[in-house]
Amino acid sequence: MTFLTVDRVCAEYGATRVLNDVTAHVAEGEMHVLLGPSGCGKTTLLRAISGLQAISGGSIALAGRRIDALPPADRGLAMVFQHYALFPNMTVRQNLAFALGRRGLGRARIADNVDRMLEVVDLTPRADALPAALSGGQKQRVALARALVLEPRLLLLDEPLSALDAQIRKRLQLELKRMQRQLGLTAILVTHDQDEAMRMGDRISILNAGRIVQSDRAETVFHRPADTFVARFLGEANILPAHLIAPGRAGHAVIHPAAFEIVTDLPLLEAEVVDTEIMGQLVRIHCRAGGEALRVDRLAGYGAERPAPGDRLQLGARPDAVHFIAPTSSPSVPDNTSPDP
């Protein structure tokens, strides 16, 4: 069931339109990722939902009630900011308690709520520390706790992990996802990191130039991109003229590098090896076929033989690993709001 409905929302910064008839649906309990390149409007959309950015058209409804005319604090949302926005002159405990200031709760109730939330994010021992004394990961958890202590119906996450280094980011991605599932939170995560989107998103909406160009389950978006922009943005898929794979066919064929197999008969393509590179567990083979550059990934065991530049490879792929995009493919925004099982 749709929990948040964004319907044909438009927003402008001065004369520049940054959201252009954006429609999105978020189901209850789902982690919905807004993914796109810098400047595509994903943070603006998040801010429009939160009420921090005025919209010039369309509507936003949460749990069936329109919220787009309400002030931010009355929308039942909380937000974790990219750089946390913790109040540096307040301790962790004071940051959380300050957030509850307007709720009219008694001191004892505020203290109980704060203590409970500090336990959830495992920061009780650091309750009296100032933010400057915390690590990046701890700051991120304080920011999350400060948002959760408001008991929001919808949690907005604006690139909350982007300021962290890669290892901590991966660990916190899993932690954040586990917490979201455990608490049954509905959340919208903004990111420009495709891996993070794949790892965390139950559903992903891809934005480009102020529009959602595809919104679907992570697996579908990855393997069945709606257009070449999505295909290019997600990973490093080979986007080839369709006629190279299926003679006479127009449009493009999308094949992920790992989907290629080296075959001995009935090849899809014959390619010439240009170079190879080791990428940890994989060896990437750069080839050319029909004038197009190709990337082919193979598992690389230690000391495994690699093809040499100039070698010719016969490449095949399972039929379901090849996705065709019609030449005039229009963006698809299916109204399927059920979260992943």
């Binding site: 921090l52 002030p71 931010p72 604090a73 900011f81 926005a85 109040f87 300050f98 408001l150």
Partner: peptide
């Protein structure tokens, strides 16, 4: 990051002056 602090406050229902 004053803009972020003010935004965080607005979401908490706190006026900018506060």
């Amino acid at each position: 990051p004053i803009a972020d602090w003010l935004d965080a406050g607005r979401l908490m229902g706190l006026r900018d002056e506060r």
